[in-house]
Each structure stands twice: as C-alpha cells, then as structure tokens.
C-alpha cells in the first residue's frame, strides 16, 4: 500500500528539486553557445559606424571577446556563481539590475492577465460543459475563436482606441504608471504589492488603471486554451461512471459538479495553465511594445538585435529558472490534487 510517510515525501520533493540542476546547467551552456552563434559583431556595433579596425579591436579586448570560446565560457560561469550576469552594452547597467527591474513588470502583467482569464475561462468552460449545445456553450465557442484568431497587438490597439481615444476611460498607454504618480518604494518590484505595503492606495489605483488594458489584451488571448481545456475536461469528468454513482447517491448537483467533477477536471486545466503562463511570459513582447510596458520581453528583443550577449544570456537564464520553478510548482500541485501521482522514488 502506498501510505506515504512524511519523511519520505520530503525526501522525494528534494530529489525532484535535484532533477532541475542538470536542466539549469544545460540552459547555461546552450544560451552561451547560441548567443555566440548570433550573426553580427557586438564590438563593431558598439564602436559605431565611424570606427576603424584598431578601435574595434580595442573594444573587442575590453569586452573579452578576443579570448578563446572555452575561456570565455569559464569566465562567464565563474561570474555567474559570483552572482554577476555581466553588464548590458546597450543600457550600460548590470544585467542583474535590469532584470530585477523589468522582470516584476512582466510578471505582474502576466499574472494579472492570467487571473482575469482564469476567472472568466474556467466558469465559462464549466457552464459550457454542463449544458453542451446551449447558448452559453456557443458564446464560449465564439469567445474562444475570437480570442485565438485576433493577434494581441491588434486587440491591444483596438482597446486603446476604444477606451483611451474614444471613451477616455483609460489612462494613456505609456508604461506602468502615469507621470503624475511616483513609483512606490522597491520591495518586490510588483507595483500593486509595493503600493499596498506603503498603503499608498492612490498610487495603487493608478497602477491598476495602467494594468487593465494590457492585462485584458493578454487575457483575451490566453482565454481560449484555458476555456477549451476546461470544457473538454469537464465533459469527460461529467460522463464518468463515478458521477453516476454520486447522482444515484442523491448528492446535490453542486456537490457533484464541483466536489466530484471539477476536481477531477483540474489536472488537465492546470497543465494548460502552466503552458499558457510559460509562453505568455516570453511572448508578450508585442503587448509590451504597444503599451510601452517596461517588461522583460521588449528588453530581450532589443538586446538580441544588437548582439548584447550578457543581456540575452541573462534573459534566457532568468526565463529558464522561472520555467523550472513553475514546472516544479505544477508538479507539487498535481500531487496535492491527485493521490495517484506520486513522486518517482529511486
């Protein structure tokens, strides 16, 4: 019998965390090699159009790019262990500092967007599954189709046009806070949290107003896979034998729907949620551009264009760590929901 002892469970979680180390090591190697494989010479770029051979070479030496690849790699790894991600050539700031400033902006946007889309998509999916072929089911289908087929930059601009230009309800789409507000003191980097900590509700509301349009844009896009998966998983769960048992035992429709069907439908929904989160975080660069959001996506694209090695590597590494953590959390949630899934014990 699989009566798991608490001690062995903790060990299993530790072992699962250990499995993430090779992944991170692989990401370090690959991000280093890929950035070196990018076309373009950063030394030539930063020397400027008027520079001659000698000054380019000077910059190359200053950047350490004249050394053999292997040596460059070991220097990079050494710096990593010291917590130094290098300096960005384009911003002139340490990459770690840039990321610390920009990552929370992206995370805040993505998380709020996912919150909005979950709060809409999951109830919608449940209602659609409960009454297949009904009005709400068709509404769900229309919304899902619209969500995936409209590109985010288009919905973004459309929302700006309606709510900022026509109705004047939304503030100007220029970053995380309008210029009349002061940014809250940096604690977590999430403006909503930092403002709440300072109990500065005026700024908090200002940050919310800036967030609504870009978050809605992203939410519309992420709605589709979540709603669709919820509907499918709920349909499967509702047609299971154990639902019939529950109904035959006289349980209320509410208990049957949420206590029995929904908990069983949660697993695929959470898998989808994890995937959607990962790809939204990396892919929301278009939304960041449209709303002048100082996020990590636009930072990475700018760095990539100018072969800013340190910045690109820092970005890839940050994303990798984030994905690893996310997957780990999802695994933990799985085991909490479904007792059949236990950590593989070696």
């Amino acid at each position: 019998m699989s009566m798991v002892k608490p001690g062995s469970r903790a060990r299993a979680i530790a072992a699962r965390m250990g499995q993430t180390l090779p992944v991170l090591a692989g990401v370090v190697v690959i991000s280093f090699l890929l950035t070196r494989a990018l076309p373009g010479d950063p030394a030539a770029y930063f020397a400027g159009a008027a520079a001659d051979e000698a000054s380019i070479e000077e910059i190359r030496i200053a950047l350490g790019l004249d050394k053999p690849l292997l040596q460059q790699f070991f220097l990079y790894v050494g710096d990593l262990f010291a917590g130094d991600l290098g300096n960005s050539l384009s911003t002139g700031q340490p990459v770690a500092q840039d990321l610390a400033r920009r990552l929370p902006a992206s995370l805040e946007l993505t998380l709020i967007a996912l919150l909005i889309s979950c709060c809409t998509a999951i109830p919608l999916g449940i209602l659609a599954a409960r009454n297949p072929g009904s009005v709400i089911d068709h509404l769900c289908r229309v919304l899902v189709t619209a969500g995936v087929s409209l590109p985010t930059f288009f919905t973004g601009i459309l929302l700006i046009y309606i709510f900022y230009y026509l109705l004047g309800l939304a503030p100007s789409p220029l970053g995380r806070l309008d210029f009349i507000y002061l940014a809250p003191d940096h604690v977590t980097g999430f403006y909503l949290i930092d403002a709440a900590i300072m109990q500065d509700w005026y700024t908090w509301w200002g940050a919310v107003k800036q967030l609504i349009l870009p978050a809605t844009t992203l939410a519309l896009f992420t709605l589709a896979p979540i709603a669709r998966m919820t509907r499918a998983a709920m349909l499967t769960a509702l047609s299971s034998d154990f639902i019939r048992t529950a109904r035959a035992a006289g349980l209320t429709p509410r208990k049957v729907l949420y206590g029995y069907a929904f908990r069983n439908a949660l697993l695929p929904v959470i898998t989808t949620l994890g995937m959607v989160f990962s790809f939204t975080l990396g892919a929301n660069v278009l939304v960041e551009k449209v709303f002048a959001w100082p996020g990590i996506g636009s930072y990475a694209v700018e760095a990539l264009v100018v072969s800013d090695y340190a910045a690109v590597q820092g970005f890839v590494l940050a994303m990798a760590v984030l994905f690893v953590v996310l997957n780990f959390v999802i695994d933990l949630v799985y085991t909490a929901i479904d007792p059949r899934i236990a950590f593989e014990q070696s």
Binding site: S240, D241, T245, R247, G250, T252, D338, P339
Partner: peptide, 22 residues
C-alpha cells in the same frame, strides 16, 4: 434527491470506475 441513496440505492458495474478516483 432525498429518495436517491436513502430510499432507493444503486450498485454499479465496473466498481473501480464507479468511485471518485481522487
């Protein structure tokens, strides 16, 4: 609903599937 399970009850085939797995 008050009759189901209290007055008239049912046992099903395929018992493993007939129980909530989680």
């Amino acid at each position: 609903r008050n009759i189901r399970g209290r007055e008239i009850s049912m046992i099903f085939q395929n018992p493993r599937a007939a129980l909530n797995p989680i």
